[in-house]
Amino acid sequence: MSTPISSRPQLGEFISIVCFKSVITGMEEALGEKATAISLIAAGRTRGKNLVQSLGLSNSSADFSTIAELLNRAVGSEGTRLTAVDKIVQVGDVVRVYCSETVCTANEPQGSDRKCTFTMGAIWGALSEITGKKLRGIHTESILRGGTHDVFEFTTFE
């Protein structure tokens, strides 16, 4: 078994938003929007699940305020810079995650119909792993369409 390269000595761990968005638009050209969205959500869910496992938060009983803080540290300005997780609130059976500066909406014009597929998937996978529940997610509000945040809503899938 070969040993993977752990980092890039000159360039580091990060790439530009322009390059990441080019991956998305290239996939949309090749696969179509729906297949791309499904793929990016699935990839994000895997990333979120693996992140939570690496943080030791699987099946955590922490409150959503603490979870938001820990996720923000991991994927926000101190971490991978995917998004800022500003807050997580539960209203009845719905868990709402409020994010800002999402990579998916960066450099998009106001009014764009762009959805946060990878970002939502990462939050989805993280919450599923934290709660131990199968969830269904939807992107309900967008900064591109007048919202103050990109809001992802999750309900338990039965």
Rank of each mutant, 00 (worst) to 15 (best):
M1L: 12
S2F: 01
S2Y: 07
S2Q: 05
P4S: 14
P4F: 14
I5V: 12
I5H: 12
P9K: 06
Q10P: 13
E13F: 13
F14R: 11
F14A: 10
I15S: 02
I15R: 04
S16R: 05
I17C: 06
V18T: 11
V18R: 08
C19R: 06
F20C: 08
K21A: 11
K21Q: 14
V23A: 14
V23F: 15
I24W: 10
I24M: 11
I24N: 14
G26T: 03
G26C: 13
M27K: 12
M27V: 13
A30N: 09
E33K: 15
T36E: 00
A37V: 14
A37Q: 07
L40Y: 08
L40G: 10
I41D: 03
I41A: 02
G44C: 05
R45S: 08
T46K: 03
K49W: 10
N50E: 11
L51Y: 06
L51F: 11
S54R: 09
G56T: 10
L57G: 09
S58E: 04
N59E: 07
S61Y: 07
A62Y: 13
T66Q: 08
T66H: 10
T66D: 09
L70M: 10
N72A: 08
R73D: 06
R73Q: 07
A74K: 04
A74M: 00
V75E: 13
G76M: 03
G76L: 00
E78D: 05
G79D: 09
L82Q: 03
V85K: 01
Q90I: 14
Q90D: 10
V91L: 10
G92Y: 00
D93T: 14
V94P: 01
V94A: 00
V95N: 00
V95T: 06
R96C: 13
R96S: 15
V97T: 14
T102C: 03
T102M: 05
T105F: 05
P109I: 15
Q110F: 13
Q110I: 07
G111T: 10
S112A: 15
S112V: 12
S112R: 05
K115Q: 11
T117A: 09
T117V: 03
T117I: 10
F118M: 00
T119H: 08
M120F: 02
A122T: 06
A122L: 06
I123N: 02
I123V: 15
I123D: 01
I123R: 00
W124N: 02
W124P: 06
W124I: 07
G125E: 02
L127G: 05
S128Y: 04
E129L: 04
T131C: 02
T131D: 08
T131S: 07
K133S: 11
K133N: 09
L135H: 01
R136S: 12
R136G: 07
R136N: 12
G137I: 05
T140V: 15
T140F: 04
S142Q: 09
I143V: 09
R145D: 15
R145A: 13
G146R: 10
G146H: 09
F152I: 10
E153V: 03
E153I: 00
F154E: 04
F154D: 03
T156W: 01
T156I: 12
F157N: 12
E158S: 13
E158W: 05
E158L: 05
